[in-house]
């Protein structure tokens, strides 16, 4: 692919992403949100973060059941404990990275 075509692809992907990011802000600014929608949205933070987390624990196989991502799951356990004990994002990240390095060093993945 030429750099010109690549640039066009990047610009179109950027435009699509930007519209997804900005349109809701414009809509919400212009209209009053109904109560049911606000109630729905109040569940979004926990739901979306749990979904992102679950995706990292699973491996997708087209046409079959997903399997467990063993090394991510093993490294996630100390990270969860670190989050509960420290309630600090930084500590959780550092413990998680160290746990993953250990999992790979021990060849458990």
């Amino acid at each position: 692919m030429t750099d010109g075509k690549l640039l066009v692809t990047i610009l179109l992907c950027g435009l699509a992403t930007w519209l997804l990011r900005v349109t809701p802000f414009v809509l919400v600014k212009a209209a009053r949100l109904p109560k049911w929608l606000l109630s729905f949205l109040s569940f979004v933070p926990v739901a979306i973060l749990a979904a992102i987390f679950a995706e990292e624990l699973l491996v997708y196989h087209p046409g079959a059941w997903p399997t467990l991502n063993v090394e991510n799951t093993l490294a996630a356990l100390p990270a969860i404990v670190a989050a509960i004990i420290s309630k600090s994002l930084l500590v959780t990240v550092v413990v998680g990275v160290a746990a993953m390095a250990a999992v790979r060093l021990l060849g458990w993945g």
């Binding site: 926990v46 973060l49 749990a50 992102i52 987390f53 990292e56 991510n72 490294a75 996630a76 990270a79 969860i80 670190a82 989050a83 509960i84 309630k87 600090s88 994002l89 959780t92 990240v93 413990v95 998680g96 990275v97 160290a98 746990a99 993953m100 390095a101 250990a102 999992v103 790979r104 060093l105």
Partner: peptide, 18 residues
Amino acid sequence: AFGLDFAVVAMFIGLLYL
């Protein structure tokens, strides 16, 4: 080998729990 690629997963764990 340094486990750095797991940083983002750990971050989401922290953000979810918090």
